[in-house]
């Protein structure tokens, strides 16, 4: 058997049809072809991910002096609405009071704003259900209300009622000075 493996052409050899050797060649060739196909397929798939220029435009600076007390401003960030709300004392108090309420996505008001900046709430303005833009002042909790499927958020942007699974997202941001924030 051994000499027929090393020498003879298996097709013509009397007992040369060594299955393990032939199988190995078939499997190796098949795997190589699959691997080659995958390396070609990946660029075709990955081209749909955010392009370089889309990623480069991903941060924005905003001057907070434009927002009066009790007012909120919606700006566009990464194609999405961004809520910048100048909260009143009453709103902050209501949010802190509800820290102990039953929350679907538990979070204290403390962690939803930067330390010492309780009056500034920066949130991504898309409902965590299916991405509609909630409006401020509606709903049962004095915060935001999403008209699409009826999610209610409180004055800290926490989900209180409706189909949305999580709180309005707080983006990555930092205070560059007392009056300027950089988001992203």
């Amino acid at each position: 058997m051994a000499d027929s493996v090393t020498g003879a052409n298996p097709e013509h050899g009397a007992d040369g049809d060594d299955p393990s050797r032939r199988d190995f060649i078939h499997i190796a060739a098949g795997v190589a072809a699959l691997g080659a196909a995958a390396t070609v397929a990946w660029p075709v798939v990955d081209q749909m991910n955010p392009a370089g220029d889309t990623l480069a435009l991903a941060s924005v600076e905003f001057d907070l002096t434009k927002v009066q007390l009790g007012q909120s401003v919606t700006i566009k960030w990464r194609g999405k609405p961004l809520f910048i709300r100048h909260r009143t004392g009453a709103e902050i108090a209501a949010a802190i009071k509800d820290d102990k309420a039953v929350l679907r996505d538990p979070a204290t008001d403390e962690v939803r704003h930067k330390p010492g900046k309780a009056e500034w709430l920066v949130l991504i303005g898309t409902c965590t259900h299916l991405g509609c833009v909630p409006t401020f002042g509606g709903g049962d909790y004095g915060g935001w209300f999403c008209p699409c499927h009826g999610s209610h958020y409180d004055t800290s942007g926490r989900i209180r009622k409706g189909p949305a699974p999580t709180n309005l997202e707080v983006p990555e941001y930092a205070f560059l000075s007392d009056t300027v924030v950089k988001v992203g």
Binding site: V45, N49, P50, A51, T54, R78, G79, K80
Partner: peptide, 17 residues
């Protein structure tokens, strides 16, 4: 969803594809 959008939201890349 990011892959479908080609960005961080429904935008020009989404419309094109």
């Amino acid at each position: 969803t990011t892959w479908l959008w080609g960005g961080f939201a429904v935008d020009n890349a989404t419309l094109n594809r």
